[in-house]
Amino acid sequence: MASYPNEDHLYEMKNKTQSDRRKFILNMARGVGITALGGFIWSAYVDEVTASQLTLRPPGAINEVDFLKTCIKCGLCVEACPYDTLLLAKPGDNKPLGTPYFIPRDIPCYMCPDIPCVPVCPTGALDEQSVTTDGKLDINIADMGLAVIDRETCIAFWGIQCDACYRACPILGHAITVEYNKNERTGKHAYLTPLVHADACTGCGLCEKACVTEKASIFVLPREVAMGEAGSYYIKGWDKADEKRLEDASEIKTTTEISKETAMDSLNSDSEDLY
């Protein structure tokens, strides 16, 4: 009997384990609370910095969402660029931190034929395949963005002769062409206005660099920002390849109250059943 602890002792031990348990639960709750708070702020911040869509990426960059996942921010592409075009986003640049980008108005992409920035990428965020034709690197199929013209400020649209962007374009005559139109205001002059062709433009930004207006009137935007989307239900009937899409088109059938009758009956019923 003597080996048993007395009742007081037992009570004390029970108290101690109880307070230990409370302490443990409190500590866990505190940890979870702080983690939740930190996690909230952290993910809000990450969401914010990755939301920017106006970032121009190096040639061969995969689509922005995957790019942000895949880029390890090592700067090897930046180091490989011989023109110092590529920059690595610093705190304060308002770009996803540490990722490569370029500002064409400062230094555009000069479209090196050997594309030194792409093969050095260790993660595949810059995809060599996307800038390769017939097993050879081909900068002309790169897609860094798309040049967009502001017709209000481009002086060629005022009737002043300027073909700076046309001349600067490395895919001269394909990515930018010049359109001739009569200048009705003077009646005897021509408008020589630039026109960007989205299928040929690589978004290198040499046009933006060359633009003579105070703030560039032709500028490069990421393609997803610059372009709309027609959607799958419009088909170019005159385009054989596009019309092919019809072959595997599927029907969407909606059934309502009036679908019981044929369309013809429904139309001939004076639409009574519609009211």
Partner: peptide
């Protein structure tokens, strides 16, 4: 643990951004 959780949820390497 949190960094891995946020990486999974947000689809980007979370700690690399901060």
């Amino acid at each position: 643990g949190l960094s891995l959780l946020i990486s999974f949820a947000m689809g980007v390497a979370a700690f690399e951004f901060i």
